[in-house]
Write a protein that binds this DNA or RNA. Structure first.
Length: 918
RNA sequence: GGGCUCGUAGAUCAGGGGUAGAUCGUCACGUUUGCAACGUGAAGGCCACGGGUUCAAAUCCCGUCGAGUCCA
C-alpha cells in the first residue's frame, strides 16, 4: 500500500473541514499544512517562517505556574483526569534513564495494552530531561535540558473509543483560544511520526513561527498483525489494537510565546536569569536596549538554523551583519550571556535530578547528573561566579516548589557541595598531569600527540580545551581536531560486544502449548513437600501442573530438591521460569509425561534463601532510616550462605553507620511483624506506594506482587518468611565501595549468620592464642608487635651497615695496574655485599665479592671505566649455575652451585686483570 | 554494564628488572632580640595486598583491594 496516499487521507479531518480550514503545500519546504488563512503560503514552521512572536506575544501573559494550571484545568474541565507528575528518573523502565516525554510514563505496559492507564483520558504536566542538545542550550535561545511536556492522552481500545483525531485537534484549538491565541494564525503541519517502535500520523501545531505542540496519533507498531503493514523508512509497521492520542505541549514554549521575550530563558525563569547575571557582574546588560536587540536578533536567526559546530560561526556572522559589528565583538558580548542562560537552565535540571533522588556517580543516570554538575561548574568559573552551586540549585528548588521533591534539600546541598569539592580536586590533579606532559613534549620540541590528549580526557576527565590552554601556557603545542569527541566515541564503539541471547528464549515456543504452572511456593512458602503431575519433559526439563520449587529470579537463586515418581527418583538441580511455565532441570534419571510425582524441596536451603531475601528488604529499610530517603537498591544477589545488596549513596557508609543499620535491622526482626503479601493492579500500586516499589528491577505484567516487610514496600516475586522474626538474626559482613555512588552491603542471615559469627570468633581466639593473649588485648598486642617489628627492622638495617663498615675496615685491597681491587668470599646477604662493593668502587676501586647463603650471591662493583661489571658478572655466575647482570658500575648475580665459588672468583680475577690490561 | 589510567616518605610525584629517590612539609642545630629567610643535619618507606616468572621484582605476568575517569 502506498504510504503517502494513506497518510494523506489520515489528515482529511472532518474538524478541519467544518472549521473551513484548507490544506496547502508550503512554498518554502513543500510540506502539507492546514490553515484558516486562505492567503497563507508557508507552513509556519522554522526555518520557513521566522520567530515573529518575539516582541509580539501571541497569548495572554502567563508564567510557568499559571500556564500549567491553565492547561491542566482546561483539560480537567473537558473530561480529563489530572495525574501527578512522574519522577525525572525513569525508575519504572530499564531501557532509559531519564523521563524524556510524557508518554514515557506509560511505556511499555500501558502503551502495550497490558496494563490499563491510571485514568482515561488523562492530562499531565511531565518534567522531562533531554541532554542530546547540550551544546545548543543557552545559545539557540530556545533549547532547554529540562522542560515540562504537558499532555492529554487518550487510550482507545477496540471495545472503548475515547476520542481520536478530530476531538484532539478541536481540544487543541479550544485550548489555544482559551489562552488568547488567534486561531487564524495557527497552522497544523502534517508530519509522519516514528519513535520507540511505534508510528503514526501527527500534526505539529505552529503559531508565530514557533512549534508549540505536537499531536501524535500512535496507531502503528512493529508487531505483525493480520492487517496489511506499511514500510516506513525501511521498517514494517502494522496497525495496533490500541490507538493512543499522544500529545505534547511545550509548557516553556507556551510561556515564551505568551511573553514574546528575546529568549525562552528570559520568559521562563526571569528571577534566576537576573540573579545569575548579577552574580556574574553582568547586571548592567539587562537594562541595555542594545543587548536586548542583539539577543532578540540572535534568537530569531537561531530559530532558523540548527546550532552545532560550524553553524555557530554562521549564526554569529548573520547577527553581526544585521547590527553592523564584527562577529568577534558580537561573540565577546554574547558568549557570557549564553553561559548565564545555560547556567540557569542547568541548575534547574539539577534541581529536578537531585530532587528526584538521582545520586551523582560514574554510571547510569548518576553519570548524567555529574556531567551536568561539572558543565555548570565550568560555566560558573568562566563567568567568575563565586556563589556556590548549591545555593543556585536550592533557589531553583524553591522556585519550582520544595514540596514537589522527595529528596531533602539538605541532602541535595551536601551532594552538590561534595561534587564541587571533588571536581576541584580532579581539575587540580588534571592540571598537574597536563603540565608534566606538556613539559616532556616541549623538552623534546614535539607537538603533544593526539593519543595523549585522548588519554587525558578519557582516563583523567580533562576537557580538551583545558588541555590546550594549560599546555600552551607551558609553551607546548597542541593540535585539537574539530571532531575530537567523535574520535573518542569511535574508539569506544570499536570495543562493543554483542548482546547476549536470553537462555530461556529457545523454550518460548515449546511452553506456549502448556498451561501456566500453579505456584505453590507463593501460597505455602513454608511447605517443602507437594504432589504434581508431569505435563511435559524435554531437554532434561520437567514441567508439572504445580510446584513448590522457586525458579531463579529477582536475584534469588532457584530451589533444589528431589522428585520421586513410581519409577524413579531424580534430583532437581535448577529451576527456571519461561513466561508463566516453570521448568525443573532434572538429573540422575528421567520423568515421563503423565507421571505422578512427589516433590521435596531442600528445606535447609529454601529456608536460608527465604531468610536472606526477607533480610534484604529489612536492611534496605534500615539503611533508608539511617542514611536518608535517596537510598535505592541498585542490584542484589541473594544466596544461602550470604547475600549482597548494592545501594545508591553519595558517600562512603561509615563503620558507625553500618553498625546502626545492623542494629536497626535486627530490631525490626525482633519486633516480629508479619510479612504482608498481596497482588495489586500495577498502576494503582504505583500511585499508592510510589516508584520506590521498583527496587529490584521492574516486573512485567498488569498485576504486581507487593511485599510489605517492616515498613518496606516493594514489588517482589521472591519467597519470604511469614514474619520478620523468622529471619532470626542479621549480621552485616562488610561494606564495599563498588563504584562511585554505589555501596555494596554484604550480609548473612539466620543459621548462616550464626555460623559466620562462630567463624569470626574462631579467628579471634586462634589469633589470641597464637600471641598468648586474651582476645580483648588482641588489638593492642598486634599494634605493639607491628611497631616492634618495624623498630627491629630498622635496628637490623643499622647493624648490617655497621657490619659493612667493619668489614670494610678489615679489607685489604691488592693493587692491579695501580687500581685497588678486592676479590673475596664474604658470607653476607646480597644487599650487604652490594653496599660493601659500592663503597669500594666509589673510591675508584673494584670489588668482586661472593657469599654463600641459600644460594651463592655475587656482586661486582667497578669504579674503573676499563672494567665493565655487567660484562664480567655473567661468566662468573654461569660457573655457579646461574645468571647475572647489571650496569657497567654495578652488577649482581648468583647461582645454586656453592662448590664452584673459588673457581668462579678465580675466573673473575682473570677477567678483571684482562680488562685492566686490555 | 563496557573501557581506560593510577596506588612508592606526612603531601606532590620521579624511578619501570640490578644498593629506594627528589621537592615541599616535620624535627634538631646554627645565624637572629623574635619572626621570616637562609645554612647544616636528621627522622620519616610491608614501593596497596596475595600469588607467579627470575640468580635478582617497587619494576614483568595473574588475581585481590583501593582511587580516578570516559562512554552506553
Amino acid at each position: 500500500m502506498d504510504v503517502l496516499i494513506v497518510l494523506e487521507e489520515e489528515y482529511q479531518l472532518d474538524y478541519f473541514k467544518e472549521q473551513g480550514m484548507v490544506r496547502k503545500i508550503c512554498k518554502s519546504c513543500g510540506s502539507a499544512f492546514w490553515t484558516r488563512d486562505s492567503a497563507r503560503e508557508i507552513c509556519g514552521d522554522a526555518p520557513c517562517e521566522p520567530y515573529n512572536f518575539i516582541g509580539n506575544p501571541v497569548f495572554k501573559t502567563h508564567n510557568l505556574d499559571t500556564m500549567r494550571e491553565a492547561y491542566l484545568s482546561f483539560f480537567e474541565k473537558h473530561g480529563h483526569t489530572r495525574i501527578e507528575r512522574y519522577p525525572v528518573a525513569a525508575r519504572w523502565r530499564d531501557d532509559i534513564y531519564l523521563t524524556i516525554a510524557s508518554i514515557a510514563d506509560f511505556q511499555p505496559y500501558v502503551t502495550g495494552g497490558i496494563v490499563p492507564p491510571p485514568a482515561n483520558p488523562l492530562t499531565i504536566s511531565q518534567p522531562c530531561i533531554r541532554l542530546n542538545d547540550l551544546d545548543s542550550v543557552g545559545r539557540s535561545g530556545r533549547h532547554l535540558t529540562t522542560f515540562e511536556m504537558m499532555a492529554h492522552h487518550a487510550f482507545n481500545t477496540p471495545s472503548e473509543e475515547i476520542y481520536w483525531k478530530d476531538r484532539t485537534v478541536e481540544l487543541c484549538d479550544q485550548f489555544i483560544a482559551s489562552i488568547g491565541g488567534d486561531l487564524n494564525r495557527v497552522t497544523f503541519k502534517e508530519h509522519l511520526w516514528i519513535g520507540g517502535g511505534n508510528a503514526g500520523p501527527s500534526v505539529e501545531v505552529l503559531i508565530g513561527g514557533l512549534e508549540i505542540a505536537t499531536l501524535v496519533f500512535m496507531s502503528l507498531g512493529r508487531q505483525k498483525t493480520a492487517q496489511p503493514g506499511y514500510d516506513l523508512n525501511g521498517d514494517m509497521y502494522y496497525p495496533m489494537k490500541l490507538r493512543i492520542v499522544d500529545t505534547g505541549y511545550g509548557l516553556e514554549r507556551l510561556v515564551w510565546a505568551s511573553k514574546g521575550s528575546p529568549t525562552i530563558y528570559d520568559a521562563v525563569f526571569p528571577e534566576m536569569v537576573s540573579r545569575v547575571m548579577s552574580a556574574a557582574g553582568l547586571s548592567h546588560m539587562l537594562n541595555n536596549k542594545d543587548y536586548t536587540r542583539i539577543l532578540s536578533l540572535n534568537a530569531k536567526f537561531a530559530g532558523l538554523m540548527d546550532i552545532s559546530g560550524t553553524n555557530l560561526f554562521q549564526l554569529r556572522k548573520k547577527v553581526a551583519a544585521a547590527i553592523d559589528i564584527s562577529p568577534e565583538k558580537l561573540d565577546r558580548i554574547i558568549t557570557p550571556m549564553e553561559k548565564v542562560y545555560a547556567t540557569v537552565d542547568h541548575t534547574r535540571c539539577l534541581a529536578y535530578m537531585l530532587g528526584d533522588c538521582i545520586v551523582p556517580s560514574n554510571v547510569r543516570e548518576g553519570y548524567l547528573a555529574r556531567l551536568v554538575i561539572r558543565r555548570t561548574l565550568r560555566m560558573m568559573t568562566d563567568l567568575k561566579i563565586e556563589e556556590p552551586l548549591a545555593d543556585l540549585i536550592e533557589e531553583q528548588t524553591r522556585i519550582i516548589g520544595m514540596k514537589k521533591f522527595e529528596q531533602d534539600i539538605a541532602v541535595v546541598r551536601e551532594i552538590v557541595e561534595r561534587e564541587t569539592v571533588k571536581y576541584a580536586a580532579t581539575l587540580e590533579r588534571g592540571t598537574r598531569i597536563v603540565q608534566k606532559i606538556a613539559k616532556t613534549y616541549k623538552a623534546r620540541s614535539q607537538r603533544v600527540p593526539l593519543a595523549e590528549i585522548i588519554t587525558l580526557y578519557d582516563s583523567h576527565g580533562i576537557q580538551p580545551e583545558m588541555i590546550r590552554d594549560i599546555a600552551t601556557r607551558e609553551g607546548a603545542v597542541v593540535d585539537l581536531p574539530d571532531n575530537f569527541y567523535s574520535m573518542v566515541a569511535d574508539m569506544h564503539s570499536e570495543s562493543k560486544k554483542e548482546a547476549e541471547v536470553s537462555t530461556t528464549a529457545k523454550y518460548d515456543e515449546r511452553v506456549q502449548g502448556l498451561p501456566p504452572t500453579k505456584k505453590l511456593y507463593y501460597e505455602q512458602s513454608s511447605d517443602v513437600e507437594f504432589e504434581a503431575v508431569v505435563l511435559d519433559f524435554f531437554d532434561g526439563y520437567a514441567v508439572t501442573d504445580q510446584t513448590l520449587f522457586y525458579p531463579e529470579g529477582g536475584g534469588q537463586p532457584a530451589d533444589t530438591g528431589t522428585m520421586v515418581s513410581s519409577e524413579s527418583m531424580v534430583r532437581v538441580d535448577d529451576v527456571i521460569k519461561v513466561a508463566e511455565v516453570i521448568l525443573h532441570h532434572i538429573s540422575g534419571g528421567i520423568l515421563q509425561r503423565g507421571d505422578r510425582v512427589k516433590g521435596m524441596v531442600d528445606e535447609e536451603r529454601r529456608w536460608s534463601l527465604m531468610r536472606h531475601h526477607t533480610a534484604t528488604h529489612v536492611i534496605l529499610h534500615a539503611a533508608k532510616e539511617v542514611l536518608g530517603a535517596h537510598i535505592h537498591q541498585a542490584g542484589a544477589q541473594k544466596g544461602s550462605e550470604s547475600s549482597r545488596m548494592d545501594l545508591r549513596h553519595f558517600k562512603h557508609i561509615t563503620p558507625d553507620e553500618l553498625r546502626r543499620i545492623e542494629t536497626a535491622a535486627n530490631r525490626m526482626i525482633m519486633a516480629n511483624q508479619p510479612v504482608e503479601i498481596s497482588t495489586e493492579d500495577r498502576t494503582k500500586a504505583e500511585q499508592k506506594y510510589g516508584f520506590s516499589l521498583y527496587q529490584g528491577g521492574v516486573p512485567p505484567g498488569r498485576y504486581i506482587r507487593i511485599v510489605k516487610v517492616a515498613g518496606d514496600i516493594e514489588a517482589c516475586a521472591g519467597t519470604h518468611c511469614r514474619s520478620t522474626g523468622e529471619v532470626g538474626v542479621i549480621k552485616i559482613i562488610r561494606v564495599e565501595h563498588i563504584q562511585d555512588g554505589i555501596e555494596r552491603i554484604e550480609f548473612t542471615a539466620g543459621v548462616a549468620a550464626i555460623y559466620y559469627m562462630q567463624h569470626l570468633e574462631q579467628i579471634v581466639t586462634s589469633s589470641a592464642e597464637a600471641l598468648s593473649v586474651q582476645p580483648d588485648n588482641l588489638p593492642a598486642t598486634v599494634n605493639r608487635f607491628f611497631t616492634e617489628w618495624k623498630d627491629q627492622k630498622k635496628e637490623i638495617e643499622r647493624m648490617s651497615s655497621k657490619v659493612v663498615e667493619l668489614e670494610l675496615q678489615s679489607l685489604v685491597a691488592e693493587s692491579m695496574e695501580g687500581i685497588p681491587v678486592v676479590i673475596k668470599r664474604i658470607d653476607l646477604p646480597r644487599k650487604e655485599l652490594a653496599q660493601l662493593a659500592s663503597s669500594i668502587s666509589e673510591k675508584g676501586g673494584i670489588a668482586l665479592l661472593a657469599g654463600i647463603g641459600e644460594t651463592v650471591s655475587v656482586v661486582l662493583a667497578s669504579g674503573e671505566p676499563r672494567v665493565n661489571a655487567g660484562d664480567i658478572i655473567g661468566q662468573v655466575c654461569s660457573l655457579l649455575g646461574g645468571k647475572g647482570g647489571g650496569k657497567p658500575t654495578m652488577a649482581q648475580g648468583g647461582g645454586p652451585d656453592a662448590g664452584q665459588i673459588d673457581l668462579a672468583l678465580k675466573v673473575g680475577r682473570e677477567r678483571i686483570i684482562a680488562a685492566l690490561q686490555g
